[in-house]
Design a protein around this nucleic acid. Structure first.
Length: 497
DNA sequence: CTGGGGACGGGGCCC
DNA sequence: GGGGCCCCGTCCCCA
């Protein structure tokens, strides 16, 4: 009996030893595999980074070659603070002025529309590619780019001689700077970036990193917070105007009324995008290779809507150079990055959509907004919209869409989806679908609209005006379509079977 | 079924 | 006459 017990004990101990050994072996195997796996992952990541850098350099190189091939080096590339050609306001000496269009109903004569320089922050900073003479093209490319989240660091990409100020002056007399210069905007995660130039300093703060509220930021700049400023970064184009929240003579449009029900502002959906699209070179050919990227911003708007400050910085990019894009530095998850890569591919496979589309900028800008406002919540939607619209564009191109059929009448093509429009303004309005630019803002609420008519229609919500009344009942409606739809109730038509 | 916004085409006016 | 600008109407969609 005792021997039996000893035997069992020995067996148990042996089994325990064996089990421990097996576990140890398994653990060792797992550890080894994990180490190998991590090593492979690290190597893959390194390769990815190297390939991206290579791609970046190639893009730069191609850009430089295109520039050199397309025009003499003395051509002015950068024209910041460009005034708007349309009747939507223009810049005068770095200040944004608004001129009421002659028949612009959204600006009522009795409205004290005050346009003032805003103040605040923005998530944007300017990347300048300075393309110097031919001898600089090639391996001598100097890439200066903030890789990290270094506050206050300006992120300029400069090629050629260092020390050149990254932002062109707005001095109209210096129309032909000695160097070819490219400037475009990008939103990055840089918490604070200060752009300096001969004439101005752009204080750019990253919303997501700024713990202060917008009201605090605005307040610190002497500007009351805008009702919608919570969602909107504010971009200052000039130091001269940073603290000029009060009215300035040149920028004030005071029509003397007391109904600031609406105003016209050039703003954009900050959560989506930071550029607006304005021009194209050869509209008849749908050639959008040269375009302007306008950095819209919002200034101050007090609660009463009496003081509206709008600021705008226009960064004009001319020439054929594609915007550089660094996937490494988009502050995105991998999924987003992949989406953008896919879209980039789709863009570039679309022969009618310029590869220099501001969507390259958009790709950088849209997903990095950290604001929490309603517009921000739509950023992803808008991006998907752009993606889808591009697919639609291809479908149109293949299936005899607007671009192939009546190209004579609809010769203005959307640079995002290729849809054709009869005139430039139509396509500009349409492109707001893609860019998220909503220049028309209601002063009585935070609503923004891409079209003036929509704002006007919206105003009836506040005024209570219901001009459309049913002749068969007492129902009244704010929209004609609503009345028309309602009339079907009386005639027995049902919307749904 | 209504309220309200997005999008777009048509048409008038002006240059 | 053509093009640009602007307004309006309409359809569609969603809440």
């Amino acid at each position: 009996m005792a021997n039996c017990m000893v035997f069992h004990t020995q067996i148990a101990s042996i089994m325990e030893v064996l089990a421990n050994a097996a576990v140890a072996d398994i653990c060792k195997l797992v550890d080894d595999d994990y180490a190998v796996f991590r090593l492979e992952m690290t190597q893959s990541q390194k390769e990815n980074r190297a390939l991206r850098r290579k791609l970046q350099l190639l893009e730069l190189k191609v850009a430089r070659e295109r520039v050199l091939a397309s025009r003499p080096s003395s051509v002015k590339i950068l024209d910041r603070h460009r005034g708007m050609a349309r009747g939507e306001g223009h810049l005068t000496g770095g200040h944004r002025s608004f001129v009421k269009p002659a028949r612009h109903n959204t600006w009522r004569d009795d409205q004290p529309n005050t346009v003032d320089e805003g103040s605040g922050t923005s998530t944007q900073h300017v990347i300048v590619i300075e393309s110097v003479d031919a001898e600089d093209a090639g391996p001598g490319v100097k890439l200066e780019r903030s890789e990290g989240e270094d506050p206050g660091q300006s992120t300029d990409i400069q090629t050629g001689a260092a020390g050149v100020l990254p932002v062109a002056t707005e001095d109209p007399t210096t129309t032909t700077p000695p160097r070819t210069r490219r400037s475009f905007t990008e939103v990055s995660g840089t918490p604070n970036a200060v752009l300096k130039s001969d004439t101005e300093t752009l204080t750019v703060a990253h919303r997501g990193s700024d713990n202060r509220s917008d009201a605090e930021r605005l307040g610190s700049l002497g500007c009351p917070p805008a009702p919608s400023s919570e969602d909107l970064p504010v971009f200052h184009q000039s130091l001269k105007t940073v603290n000029s929240c009060g009215n300035t003579d040149g920028d004030t449009l005071d029509t003397g009324g007391d109904d600031p029900s609406c105003f016209y502002a050039t703003e954009m959906d900050p959560g989506n995008i930071s550029v607006g699209l304005e021009t194209q070179t050869d509209l008849s050919r749908g050639d959008w290779n040269r375009y302007s990227s306008s950095v819209y911003s919002e200034g101050c708007l007090d609660k009463k809507g009496e003081v509206i400050a709008v600021d705008k910085v226009t960064v004009k990019v001319e020439g054929d150079t594609p915007l550089t894009w660094n996937a490494d530095e988009t502050h995105l998850g991998e999924g987003h990055s992949q989406d953008f890569l896919d879209y980039r591919d789709s863009l570039e496979t679309n022969p009618n959509v310029s590869s220099h589309s501001p969507l390259h900028t958009l790709r950088d800008c849209a997903p990095v907004s950290t604001s929490k406002g309603p517009y921000d919540s739509r950023s992803r939607v808008l991006f998907d919209q752009v993606l889808n619209s591009n697919d639609r564009a291809r479908a149109q191109a293949q299936g005899g869409g607007a671009t192939s059929g009546n190209s004579k009448e609809k010769r203005f093509l959307c640079m995002f989806c290729n849809k054709g429009f009869s005139c430039l303004q139509k396509v500009e309005i349409h492109q707001r679908v893609h860019t998220g630019v909503k220049p028309f803002s209601c002063t009585q609420c935070d609503m923004r609209f891409a079209e003036a008519g929509s704002l006007k229609r919206h105003q009836r919500v506040h005024t209570g005006e219901k001009p459309y009344s049913c002749p068969q009942c007492h129902m009244r409606f704010t929209q004609a379509g609503s009345l028309k739809r309602h009339l079907k109730v009386h005639v027995g038509e049902r919307l749904f079977a």
